[in-house]
Design a binder for these strands. Sequence first.
DNA 1: CATGAATGAGTGTTCATTCAT
DNA 2: AATGAATGAACACTCATTCAT
Lengths: 220, 220, 220, 220
Amino acid sequence: MDVFSPPHTRQRRKDARPAELTAAALELFVEKGFAGTRLDDVAARAGVSKGTLYLYFDSKEALFKAVIQEGIVPILEEGSGVVEAFKGSAGELLRLMVDEWWPRIGDTHLGGLPKLMISEARNFPDLANYYNEAVIVRGKDLIRSILKRGIASGEFRPVDVDTAIDVILAPLLMQVIWRYSLGACCGARHDARMYLHTHLDLVLRGLANALPPGKRKPPE
Amino acid sequence: MDVFSPPHTRQRRKDARPAELTAAALELFVEKGFAGTRLDDVAARAGVSKGTLYLYFDSKEALFKAVIQEGIVPILEEGSGVVEAFKGSAGELLRLMVDEWWPRIGDTHLGGLPKLMISEARNFPDLANYYNEAVIVRGKDLIRSILKRGIASGEFRPVDVDTAIDVILAPLLMQVIWRYSLGACCGARHDARMYLHTHLDLVLRGLANALPPGKRKPPE
Amino acid sequence: MDVFSPPHTRQRRKDARPAELTAAALELFVEKGFAGTRLDDVAARAGVSKGTLYLYFDSKEALFKAVIQEGIVPILEEGSGVVEAFKGSAGELLRLMVDEWWPRIGDTHLGGLPKLMISEARNFPDLANYYNEAVIVRGKDLIRSILKRGIASGEFRPVDVDTAIDVILAPLLMQVIWRYSLGACCGARHDARMYLHTHLDLVLRGLANALPPGKRKPPE
Amino acid sequence: MDVFSPPHTRQRRKDARPAELTAAALELFVEKGFAGTRLDDVAARAGVSKGTLYLYFDSKEALFKAVIQEGIVPILEEGSGVVEAFKGSAGELLRLMVDEWWPRIGDTHLGGLPKLMISEARNFPDLANYYNEAVIVRGKDLIRSILKRGIASGEFRPVDVDTAIDVILAPLLMQVIWRYSLGACCGARHDARMYLHTHLDLVLRGLANALPPGKRKPPE
DNA sequence: CATGAATGAGTGTTCATTCAT
DNA sequence: AATGAATGAACACTCATTCAT
């Protein structure tokens, strides 16, 4: 059999359909919320008829879950690999992570996921739990390991790690949340990359160990 | 006439009705979103019939707007008065503001407003604009004036003020957003007051001017 | 309170509604079957809007079950009382039963129930079981007791009772089934009362004991 | 050429297809009714794809009509031949007819046709008329000729023939109707052949002429 | 011939809104 | 003022029918 030719148009379409549909759904769910989104509109945006949606998803709720789960997949897998392999300072590593996160996630359609999940968490508690464990807990663990490494090496002060994680992450999250909520109505914000840099500068300064290396007391 | 006794139940009830209704609506809008909330449920929670809602609000949308507008209490007015009158350091003032915000807003039903506004901003852009100007811009202005004062006095380094505002506010917002979204499903978080304190400690350290007073260069 | 005046129109309507709705539904279900009946049509025939149906019945299926159960209620209650109290011969009693059944059930809208239940039994097996026990088994028991009495008294031959029940009932059932199925398309049938009489004549002759009273052998 | 071998599978399949499809459809129509049957299920039961149905039938309605028309086998032709050729008594002839009907029709998938036709008659009046004339009228004519012969010969009393036809046929019909409706839910019935025998015994006794041959008055 | 992906009109169900009481 | 029965437009979902492959 000729395995080199591109597959038939029909087949190629069939395989690509679910992703096209969840992409359209993601945009509308983020914009209008789950209950406020009509399946007609999802179908129209994906360029198919309403019935086609039901060839791939059993219900509106199933579509919603697919949107979330599909959005989660590509995240965080490689992040932990980068952390382990990195040789430089903890501060540089944090910068690297944020620099990668922005173009790969934050500046993508996936950036709408946090707003969506926040809005619908209480309507889909199971999904919220899954999202929490698959994304939030694991994301925080990533930052935690960096902070701990920095504290161990004396690069950072011995701060309360869990709070520090929030101080680092909250502005990032608010950035994407804003963009997909009030930011869409109330005028633009500052330049994102610049903002993220300044943010990290500020936080790293707060984490920095002021004592010269010799006088540092080891963290308990 | 006895002007000290509370008014007749009937009268008092009538005056209190709108607030009772918006209170019930706030809870449900925060929990399920605007489209996901049924007026039957709002009425039931307020202990009235569905028809009664329409005696006080023209439509579901009008109820929603009332919920938001009523939630925007004039507490910011008070805040700016405090800022102007305060004599201590900028750091102490920041601590004071956060310490007041938590019990008066964050730890109240009003704490659900940010989540609600974020979720529905794109469905109610007019309202989002109003909320932005009445709450967000003014709230940031408050923090901005504190930061500027601290920088002017040399207490803080000359940082990028707008970014600093976000670094200060984002964790506070995430705290209340979390509480009304995934926090309702995914287990409790740390103690709120302790968390806020630690957060401010960290940020203030990042803002602090490391140079001794004599060697500080004046902010441009 | 004035308990003698007729109740408010609103209330009177509310109480009567379920029966009006099931009456309309019965006609359409009998005519078109469950799946072939549109709730729009049921509502229209009852003179209400479609939404009103849902004030009284949770779903189309619930409406169907109510139609059946409401149709079953008035049947057979008094029948057994009549059988026990009757003093005449078994043959006369059978005639009486059939003569009562026709104007009270067969010639009524309720006459459509057998056709409906037969058509939908396999789609609603629970309901079919209920109908079987509440109507069919009890109806047969009624005939059985008459036949047994006639056999015991020597009026009837000692025939196979269960078969005889069917021979008596089947033409009655076919009469009403026909009327609500092919009879509605394929022209009228003979006069019903005359037909029922002739039918009973024939069957009673088949049941009659040909032996003179003295030579009858007692049934085992 | 070898004309005795079975034809190529392909060819045989093609010719047999319509019958396979109507067979599958018959079962489902009988079970769920016309409107309640999905063409997906018909196709699945026949082991073909849904599109294939449309190669052989223009529409669901056309399939339904084919099911009915195909089910009206020319067995009645045969029946009238038997009646004319039969030499024995009318009673024996009736027994013969019933004995042949049961294994050839009643105990076959065709036994579901009466229930189906009854259920859908009013939705397909044309078809109902056709069925009435092709099956019911002709079937009754068959019985009528037997009864008339029996009356003419003095074997039967001069009864009302049309009523007698119903008394004979109704239990047979109810037998097959029951089997495909409530019988599928509410437990089994008596042995069919035994039942049919007992039924005929009873009816023939009701038809029998009690007078000795000499005293019989000729039917008018 | 046969397939099964795609369609869209149709139907069951919900719910914001109205209004007679 | 308050009620709650009634409405009907809107939406999720189904399924007979089509057609490119």
